[in-house]
Structure formats: C-alpha cells, structure tokens
Design a protein around this nucleic acid. Structure first.
Lengths: 197, 197
DNA sequence: GTCTATAGCTGGATAGAC
DNA sequence: GTCTATCCAGCTATAGAC
C-alpha cells in the first residue's frame, strides 16, 4: 500500500458499500464495483473469494459493533438506557447511511445474506428488548407485546433514512441529526407511555 | 380464460409479486416468474412489454388505492383521522404483505422503479401529512419537523412487517392484526403528544 | 498481488411458426 | 395468444502470465 491512496481492499469495500446501498446486491455487478474502485475484477476472487465474500466483508468491516456495545446498558435506568441507545443508533445510521441502507434492504429479503446481517443486528436489538422488558416490569413503560414494541421502536429509530424521499416531495428544510435524534427519542418514550419525556 | 384457472396475465402478476417480495426485483428472473406462473417466457414481452412492465403492473394492479382514498380525511378531526388512516394502512399492508415488501424495498433504492412506487404512495402520505399539520395547528399534536414526524409515523405503521424477523429470534407468541394496529395507533398518538390516547 | 483472457452460464428479449 | 428456438449482452469466476 502507498501512503496517499487507501489500500486496494478497502477501496473495493468502499465502492461496494456505496453501490450495494444505491442499487442493491443483485443490482450491482462485480465489474461495476471494481470499476468504481479502480481495481481489476480478478481481485474480488483473490481477496474476498467472490461477490458474497465482498458483501460479508462490507457488513463486518463497517458495522460499528464496538460503538454500540461500549456502554453496559444493563446497569442503566430503562428510560436513560433507551434514550442513550436510540440516540446512538440514530447517530450511527446517520453517519454511515450506506451501510444502514444495505442492512435494511437485506432485512426485507429472504437471501443467503440475511444471516450475516442478523448476526450483527441481534446484539443491538437484544439490548433494546431487555430495556423494554425491564421498563415494563418497573412500571415505567406500557405495552402489550414486547416484540411489537421492539419493532415500533426500531421503526422510529430508523425512520430518518426515509426523509430524503420526502424532502424531494414536500421540499421543506433539512434538519440536523441532533434534532432528529431528540425528536425520535421523545416520540419513542411518549409512545411507550412515559409521561413528560 | 377458463372458469377454474385465473387468467394467465393475473397468474404472472401473482407469481411476480411473490418472487419480487422474497428475492427482490433484480434477484428474480423472468424465467423464474414464468415457471412459477405456469406460463411461457415470451408472454412477458407480449403482455407487459418486458420485465419493468411486469413490475409496474404488479404495483398498479394490487395497490389498494381505492380503499385508502375512500374516506375524506380532510373532514375528520386530526386524532380520529390519524387513528383511522393508520389502522387502514396497517390492515392493508398486513393483508398483502408481499406488495408492501416490494414497495419498501424500492423505497430504499435508487432505481427506475422508484417513480412508479412514489406515484401511488404520495397520495397516501400527503393525507397523513395534512392531518399532522392540521393537528399541530389545532394544538393537539406536538412536533418540530413535519417531515420527521411523517416518517416516524410511517415507521411505526410499517414496523409490523419486521416482526417475522424477531419471532424467529425471540420466539414469542404471534399476535393478530387488530392488536398490532391498536398498539401502533396508541404508540403514534402518544408519540405525537396526545394525552390519554 | 495484480493483470489479461476466457470459460461457462444465465439474463432479457424477440422472430417467426402455429 | 401462445409456443419454440435463438440471439447476444452481461454475469461470476478462474487459469495462467507477469
């Protein structure tokens, strides 16, 4: 590797991340990825063993698992835990929009990549679920089905990625990630029955 | 057309809807669709003008636009309007899960199909947006950005489609669509600042 | 580690028979 | 309207030179 250009493997992963996000896995060819990365097609086989290997490497290389596990949420008050965890999820998905588009796409499909994605996601979602269940036990959260509550919380936390679709249509002001996160946290806590969130 | 079997065009659309939902548009071949439909490959060109035409026909044939526009939501109280519209969206997306998977996939991509999808969706989302804005004016809803509020409401309304991912993982009881809708409506109204939803 | 060249398929589309 | 047969562009993957 030279000093100025990133490593060729990283260049391939970056190009793949961008193209998978925009066009989907099946809508993107290895040729496209390598052209965008300034790399030769044969390098995909050599470095990653094939297209599926590139996908797996993208998810595992860029998913910020450390950042999402750096706090011990089991020690926190459920309200503060949800507040912190949801804020962090929004920050992370906003910073690397491409990766979260890729992950969301695969959650909607029955593909061989689903397991790769679920492996990294379960660790985060289990934490949210634990906080919800503990909050319900302590009487601060109100809901019937914990799975339903979990997906509703996730739906709000990930909803900001669809804003770009509507900024086209409704043409209003763009807002920063801090405002988005604050509004989402408030919406979620109120939705869970917390008074004065 | 005979009396027992559905029309061949409809059989193609039904097969395409199922396969696009499971595998995505690019992950599904015309050959696969026709095999599942018991049809000859050449019929896709003949009846729909190509694969993109099949996609467009699937969205336009199965999207329940009448059902979603049969109520004049402009006449309703914002709270009742949101309650009714969100319930209806959940009923519709729960009844035809395949179509809503297809639509959600395309919302995450920059594809030539996006316009087809946005055309049918804008009509529904504009209604939600109007109700939100009116509710804010009347002082019953609380939020800063209307676009952010809109996508959060949509995130909750469509979240139930991800429950299948977690019923695998957390293995709890399945709940009916009425309970899902009731919980989602409550969550949304509380999230919007309505007391005692 | 990186390249060229190519094998071996499968994709969407259609011409033309019936 | 529906079929068979076929075109050819595009795909992933790899053998083998450098």
């Amino acid at each position: 590797m030279t000093q100025t250009e990133p490593d060729i493997k990283i260049r391939i992963l970056l190009a793949a991340k961008r193209l998978f996000a925009q066009q989907g896995y099946d809508g993107t060819s290895c040729r496209q990825v390598c052209e965008a990365a300034g790399a030769n097609i044969a390098l995909i086989s050599y470095h990653f063993g094939g297209k599926e290997g590139v996908y797996k490497a993208v998810v595992e290389h860029f998913f910020p698992i450390k950042e999402l596990k750096s706090v011990n949420f089991a020690d926190l008050d459920p309200i503060e835990g949800i507040r912190l965890l949801v804020s962090r999820i929004i920050q992370v998905t906003h910073r690397d929009r491409e990766l979260s588009f890729i992950i969301q796409q695969e959650m909607l499909l029955r593909s061989p990549r689903r397991q790769t994605v679920m492996n990294v996601l379960v660790e985060v979602w289990s934490q949210v679920r634990s906080l919800l269940l503990r909050g319900k036990e302590e009487g601060v959260f109100t809901f019937d089905s914990s799975t339903n509550a979990l997906v509703m919380v996730m739906g709000v936390a990930l909803s900001h990625k669809h804003m770009v679709n509507f900024e086209d249509v409704f043409a209003d002001e763009k807002i920063g990630v801090e405002s988005i996160a604050a509004e989402a946290v408030r919406f979620i806590l109120l939705g869970l029955g917390v008074k004065e969130a």
